[in-house]
Design a protein around this nucleic acid. Structure first.
Length: 399
DNA sequence: GTCAATTCACATGAAAGAGACCACGGTCTAGTG
DNA sequence: CTAGACCGTGGTCTCTTTCATGTGAATTGACGA
């Protein structure tokens, strides 16, 4: 009882946060710091759309958390209001190709686009070309300029194929009244290189690079947001610089920096502390790291967890490096014990590759001469995460 | 000793099947006037 | 007569399996010095 009261009290009387939403990633600030160059350039390219002209397709790229999405949406909003005043039909459609809902299929991306136009379409069940033509119909309904913002477009292309973009860029030729342009946003800098040349030239009519923020710029951003988010003088000296430094190490990811600050705040509130200090920061940093991993592990399907379990068992017992064959054997044992279906080696091999992508393990393809070719696997979880991960696996596999 | 062929133990690709899902459209049922 | 429940259809999606082909170096064995 008392404890619960205490917990509640710490929330009620918490005078650290003024407005926490400012630190959430979907918050869009009034001003965007250190991006004026990019934004102005973008604006100058998009400008003609205000008078109803088609504008070049644009390709934005930069690492995560460099303000690509933010800048694009910021400008989209401003331009839409401007267009309203001027009486031009200008529409921005924003789609994140990576979000779970979309789950990276051509069909759903179009479906999402249609939905954001206010029309609906079955989530599945229609042939893809029908969806396209319906999309075209809707857009071509009246004279307007439509600008598609395709966020994380590299993900879409990886899962689907690049002729998806090609179709989109070619769509203009089928439109009679409307004009369509594309803003592609990508995290990967090399994304453009392995595209079909036709797509590359049509998508990349203009390119804007978003360089990572350096520690100083991050500091400015953090300071600005922190002033709104926190009450006065709750941040210890050095918290923001440290936060900026952490994030700068992670290739200048501003989103990460803001998360860090928010979590540090939350930890401080929970502790009932009056201030946020450096130790909160450190804790926040490891918590974010840990949560991310554990979340991934927990949400993984059963078979993936079984394979991971096999890898962890091997990692526990043996000092020597782990190979695919070993994993598969242990995996089979575990499956028999837990009465799970046993997948083929082929599939397990893919699963291991996916773990590699997730950063849970580090796998390297090596050739051992006569002993064949295999992956050399190393578990990349730090000890305390590993323990937690074990618990999660126990829970979700045994019962 | 040297060099090419062999061979291992998988990696990597392609294709195709199983099972789940979902809107659509038609049919059936029950409730309403 | 109409709204809602219920089914079959046609399509997609994801997860797997099956079949095929690729691969890099340790090993082998033939060859020549």
């Amino acid at each position: 009882m008392d404890n619960i009261d205490k917990i509640f009290d710490s929330f009620v009387s918490n005078n650290l946060f003024r407005d926490k939403s400012v630190l959430q990633s979907n918050y869009s600030p009034q001003v965007i710091l250190h991006r004026s160059q990019q934004i102005e350039y973008l604006a100058s390219i998009l400008g003609p759309s205000l008078s109803g002209d088609r504008v070049s397709n644009i390709f934005l790229y930069g690492k995560t958390g460099t303000g690509k999405t933010l800048s694009a949406r910021f400008l989209a909003e401003r331009m839409e209001t401007k267009a309203n005043l001027a009486g031009t039909n200008l529409k921005f459609l924003y789609v994140n190709c990576k979000s779970k809902k979309i789950s990276d299929t051509e069909y759903r991306i179009i479906a999402e686009l249609i939905k954001s136009l206010g029309k609906t379409i079955p989530i599945t069940g229609l042939p893809t070309d029908v969806v396209y033509s319906r999309f075209i119909d809707i857009i071509d309904d009246k004279k307007q300029v439509v600008i598609l913002i395709l966020d994380e477009i590299d993900q879409a292309v990886k899962k689907i194929s690049d002729n998806f973009i090609y179709t989109l860029t070619r769509m203009n030729s089928e439109l009679k009244n409307a004009q369509i342009s594309i803003i592609g946003i990508s995290n990967s800098l090399t994304f453009m290189d392995n595209l079909d040349p036709r797509v590359r030239s049509s998508l990349g009519e203009e390119e804007i690079v978003f360089p990572p923020y350096n520690a100083l710029q991050l500091r400015d951003i953090l300071k600005e947001r922190a002033e709104i988010a926190f009450n006065d003088s709750v941040l210890d000296e050095g918290v923001i610089p440290k936060c900026a430094a952490y994030a700068a190490r992670e290739h200048g990811d501003a989103r990460r920096a803001l998360d860090l600050l928010r979590v540090a705040g939350e930890i401080a509130v929970r502790e009932g502390s009056k201030k946020i200090n450096l130790s909160h920061m450190d804790e926040a940093n490891s918590k974010i790291e840990r949560d991310k991993m554990l979340d991934i592990i927990e949400s993984e399907p059963t078979q993936f967890q079984l394979v991971l379990k096999a890898i962890m068992n091997l990692d526990d017992h043996e000092e020597k490096t782990i190979f695919t064959g070993d994993v598969f054997n242990v995996y089979q044992e575990i499956c028999e014990k837990t009465k799970n279906e046993i997948l083929t080696q082929r599939r397990v091999s893919d699963i291991i590759a996916e773990f590699d992508m997730l950063g849970i393990i580090n796998a390297r393809v090596i050739s051992k001469g006569r002993q064949g070719r295999t992956r050399e696997i190393k578990l990349m979880l730090s000890p305390n995460i590993k323990e937690k991960a074990k618990e999660i696996l126990q829970k979700s596999l045994d019962l």
